[in-house]
Simulated scan of single mutants.
Amino acid sequence: MKFLPVALAATLSIAAPAQAATIVDTGTPPDASWGLSLGPEQSLAGRFSLSSATTLTDVQGYIKSYSNSATLTIAINRGGSVPGGVLYSGAVALAQGASFQGLGNLNWVLDAGDYWVSFANSGSGMMPGGAPNPLSKAAYWKSSQGWKGLYDPSRSMGVRISGVAAAVPEPATWAMMIVGFAMVGAAGRSRRKVAVAG
Protein backbone atom coordinates (compact mmCIF):
# COMPACT_ATOMS: atom_id res chain seq x y z
CA MET A 1 0.00 0.00 0.00
CA LYS A 2 1.50 3.29 -1.10
CA PHE A 3 -0.44 5.38 1.40
CA LEU A 4 1.30 3.74 4.41
CA PRO A 5 4.45 5.96 4.30
CA VAL A 6 2.33 9.04 3.62
CA ALA A 7 0.00 8.32 6.55
CA LEU A 8 2.93 7.64 8.86
CA ALA A 9 4.77 10.81 7.82
CA ALA A 10 1.62 12.92 8.25
CA THR A 11 0.96 11.46 11.68
CA LEU A 12 4.50 12.05 12.90
CA SER A 13 4.62 15.60 11.51
CA ILE A 14 1.69 16.53 13.76
CA ALA A 15 3.94 15.95 16.77
CA ALA A 16 7.04 17.58 15.26
CA PRO A 17 9.28 19.33 17.80
CA ALA A 18 8.93 23.08 18.29
CA GLN A 19 11.78 25.56 17.86
CA ALA A 20 13.78 26.63 20.92
CA ALA A 21 12.69 29.91 22.49
CA THR A 22 14.25 32.23 25.05
CA ILE A 23 13.15 31.34 28.58
CA VAL A 24 15.41 33.65 30.58
CA ASP A 25 17.29 36.71 29.31
CA THR A 26 18.49 39.16 31.94
CA GLY A 27 20.19 41.26 29.28
CA THR A 28 23.87 42.15 29.17
CA PRO A 29 25.34 43.86 32.24
CA PRO A 30 26.30 47.38 31.12
CA ASP A 31 29.71 47.54 32.82
CA ALA A 32 32.17 44.64 32.99
CA SER A 33 34.45 46.42 35.49
CA TRP A 34 32.53 45.39 38.62
CA GLY A 35 30.43 42.46 39.76
CA LEU A 36 30.55 39.26 41.79
CA SER A 37 33.78 37.29 42.09
CA LEU A 38 33.74 33.86 40.46
CA GLY A 39 36.91 31.96 41.28
CA PRO A 40 37.87 28.41 42.33
CA GLU A 41 36.37 28.77 45.82
CA GLN A 42 33.12 30.39 44.67
CA SER A 43 29.93 29.63 42.79
CA LEU A 44 27.12 31.97 41.76
CA ALA A 45 23.50 31.03 41.15
CA GLY A 46 20.22 32.63 40.12
CA ARG A 47 16.67 31.35 40.49
CA PHE A 48 14.21 31.03 37.62
CA SER A 49 10.76 29.48 37.15
CA LEU A 50 9.17 27.34 34.47
CA SER A 51 5.40 27.46 33.95
CA SER A 52 5.34 24.16 32.04
CA ALA A 53 7.56 21.16 31.37
CA THR A 54 10.52 22.33 29.27
CA THR A 55 13.61 20.91 27.61
CA LEU A 56 16.55 23.28 28.06
CA THR A 57 18.72 23.59 24.95
CA ASP A 58 21.17 26.41 25.86
CA VAL A 59 22.41 27.86 29.16
CA GLN A 60 24.83 30.81 29.27
CA GLY A 61 26.24 33.23 31.81
CA TYR A 62 27.92 36.59 31.25
CA ILE A 63 31.44 35.83 32.44
CA LYS A 64 34.59 37.95 32.65
CA SER A 65 37.48 35.50 32.72
CA TYR A 66 41.07 36.47 33.58
CA SER A 67 42.54 32.98 33.09
CA ASN A 68 43.98 31.41 29.96
CA SER A 69 42.76 27.86 30.57
CA ALA A 70 39.79 28.05 32.93
CA THR A 71 36.73 25.81 32.83
CA LEU A 72 33.20 27.02 33.48
CA THR A 73 30.84 24.47 35.04
CA ILE A 74 27.13 25.19 34.69
CA ALA A 75 24.50 23.27 36.65
CA ILE A 76 20.74 23.25 37.05
CA ASN A 77 19.84 22.79 40.69
CA ARG A 78 16.58 22.00 42.42
CA GLY A 79 14.61 25.02 43.62
CA GLY A 80 14.05 26.32 47.14
CA SER A 81 15.30 29.26 49.18
CA VAL A 82 18.86 28.24 48.23
CA PRO A 83 20.09 25.98 45.41
CA GLY A 84 19.35 22.31 46.05
CA GLY A 85 20.76 19.13 44.53
CA VAL A 86 22.24 19.17 41.03
CA LEU A 87 19.90 17.84 38.32
CA TYR A 88 22.15 18.47 35.31
CA SER A 89 25.63 19.87 34.80
CA GLY A 90 28.20 20.38 32.07
CA ALA A 91 31.53 22.15 31.56
CA VAL A 92 33.03 24.33 28.85
CA ALA A 93 36.41 26.02 28.34
CA LEU A 94 36.26 29.75 29.10
CA ALA A 95 37.52 32.43 26.74
CA GLN A 96 39.28 35.44 28.22
CA GLY A 97 37.40 38.70 28.39
CA ALA A 98 33.74 39.46 29.09
CA SER A 99 31.02 37.73 27.08
CA PHE A 100 28.11 35.31 27.31
CA GLN A 101 29.58 31.82 27.51
CA GLY A 102 28.01 28.46 28.22
CA LEU A 103 26.55 25.21 26.99
CA GLY A 104 24.53 24.45 23.85
CA ASN A 105 22.81 21.49 22.20
CA LEU A 106 21.44 20.35 25.56
CA ASN A 107 18.57 18.01 26.23
CA TRP A 108 17.89 18.83 29.90
CA VAL A 109 14.23 18.00 30.66
CA LEU A 110 12.60 19.86 33.57
CA ASP A 111 9.07 19.86 34.94
CA ALA A 112 7.23 23.07 35.77
CA GLY A 113 8.58 24.69 38.94
CA ASP A 114 11.42 26.72 40.46
CA TYR A 115 15.07 26.01 39.69
CA TRP A 116 18.51 27.54 40.16
CA VAL A 117 21.16 27.89 37.47
CA SER A 118 24.65 27.90 39.01
CA PHE A 119 28.08 28.81 37.66
CA ALA A 120 31.51 27.69 38.91
CA ASN A 121 34.88 28.74 37.51
CA SER A 122 38.13 26.78 37.85
CA GLY A 123 40.17 29.93 37.21
CA SER A 124 40.02 33.60 38.08
CA GLY A 125 37.08 35.73 36.99
CA MET A 126 33.79 37.39 37.82
CA MET A 127 30.20 37.76 36.70
CA PRO A 128 29.59 41.47 36.04
CA GLY A 129 26.55 42.85 37.85
CA GLY A 130 23.71 45.17 36.98
CA ALA A 131 21.90 43.10 34.34
CA PRO A 132 18.87 45.17 33.22
CA ASN A 133 16.28 42.38 33.76
CA PRO A 134 17.50 40.65 36.93
CA LEU A 135 16.43 37.21 38.09
CA SER A 136 14.07 37.16 41.08
CA LYS A 137 16.76 35.86 43.41
CA ALA A 138 20.50 35.31 43.30
CA ALA A 139 22.90 33.58 45.63
CA TYR A 140 26.60 32.97 46.03
CA TRP A 141 28.61 30.25 47.68
CA LYS A 142 32.02 29.81 49.24
CA SER A 143 33.02 26.25 50.07
CA SER A 144 33.51 26.97 53.77
CA GLN A 145 30.27 28.94 54.17
CA GLY A 146 27.54 27.26 52.14
CA TRP A 147 24.99 29.18 50.10
CA LYS A 148 24.44 32.79 51.12
CA GLY A 149 21.79 35.12 49.74
CA LEU A 150 22.47 38.13 47.54
CA TYR A 151 19.08 39.60 46.69
CA ASP A 152 20.18 43.07 45.55
CA PRO A 153 18.94 43.30 41.92
CA SER A 154 21.68 45.82 41.08
CA ARG A 155 24.21 43.02 41.55
CA SER A 156 22.34 40.65 39.26
CA MET A 157 24.45 38.64 36.83
CA GLY A 158 23.78 38.07 33.15
CA VAL A 159 21.97 34.81 32.33
CA ARG A 160 20.45 33.44 29.13
CA ILE A 161 18.49 30.19 28.97
CA SER A 162 16.71 28.78 25.92
CA GLY A 163 14.49 25.73 25.58
CA VAL A 164 11.46 24.06 24.11
CA ALA A 165 8.24 23.91 26.11
CA ALA A 166 6.50 20.55 26.12
CA ALA A 167 3.67 20.76 23.61
CA VAL A 168 0.19 19.80 24.77
CA PRO A 169 -1.76 18.71 21.67
CA GLU A 170 -5.14 20.29 21.03
CA PRO A 171 -8.17 17.91 20.85
CA ALA A 172 -8.26 18.26 17.05
CA THR A 173 -4.58 17.31 16.90
CA TRP A 174 -5.23 14.23 19.04
CA ALA A 175 -8.06 13.23 16.67
CA MET A 176 -5.81 13.61 13.63
CA MET A 177 -3.08 11.55 15.29
CA ILE A 178 -5.52 8.77 16.19
CA VAL A 179 -6.88 8.69 12.63
CA GLY A 180 -3.33 8.60 11.28
CA PHE A 181 -2.31 5.71 13.52
CA ALA A 182 -5.54 3.88 12.62
CA MET A 183 -4.66 4.24 8.94
CA VAL A 184 -1.16 2.91 9.60
CA GLY A 185 -2.63 -0.04 11.52
CA ALA A 186 -5.18 -0.79 8.79
CA ALA A 187 -2.47 -0.70 6.13
CA GLY A 188 -0.37 -3.12 8.17
CA ARG A 189 -3.30 -5.53 8.57
CA SER A 190 -4.13 -5.48 4.87
CA ARG A 191 -0.46 -6.20 4.02
CA ARG A 192 -0.51 -9.25 6.29
CA LYS A 193 -3.71 -10.52 4.65
CA VAL A 194 -2.19 -10.13 1.18
CA ALA A 195 0.96 -11.96 2.28
CA VAL A 196 -1.07 -14.87 3.75
CA ALA A 197 -3.26 -15.10 0.64
CA GLY A 198 -0.22 -15.13 -1.66
Rank of each mutant, 00 (worst) to 15 (best):
V184C: 14
S124K: 02
K2S: 11
V82K: 13
N133I: 14
F100I: 05
S43E: 09
D114H: 09
G185I: 13
R160H: 07
A131G: 11
L106P: 04
R189C: 08
A53S: 13
T73M: 08
L38S: 03
S136G: 15
V194G: 11
A195H: 09
T11K: 00
A21Q: 15
K142V: 10
G185M: 10
F100V: 03
V24A: 03
T28V: 13
Y140P: 00
S144N: 14
L50P: 02
L106R: 03
A112F: 05
A53I: 08
A186G: 12
V24W: 01
M126T: 05
A53H: 04
G79T: 04
W174V: 15
A10L: 15
G35C: 06
G158S: 09
V109F: 04
R191H: 12
L135V: 14
A16I: 11
Q145D: 15
A112V: 08
A53L: 05
V86N: 07
A175L: 15
K142D: 09
P169T: 14
I63C: 06
F181K: 02
Q96I: 07
V179S: 13
Y151E: 13
V184Y: 02
A172L: 15
P29M: 06
V24K: 03
L8I: 11
G198L: 06
V117P: 07
V59M: 09
A93L: 10
D111P: 01
A166Y: 11
L103H: 05
G149H: 10
G185D: 07
A187K: 04
D25C: 06
G97D: 05
A138Y: 06
P171H: 04
A53N: 09
A112Y: 02
R155W: 14
I161L: 13
K148E: 14
T71Q: 14
G102E: 12
A16S: 13
G97T: 03
P5L: 11
P30E: 08
A186Q: 10
P169F: 05
A197E: 12
M127G: 10
S144D: 15
S49P: 00
S154I: 12
G39Q: 12
R192E: 00
I178F: 10
S89N: 14
G163R: 00
T22H: 03
A98M: 04
G27F: 03
A175D: 10
Q60C: 01
M126N: 06
F119P: 02
M126S: 12
A172S: 14
A95E: 13
G46N: 03
G185T: 14
L50N: 01
F181N: 12
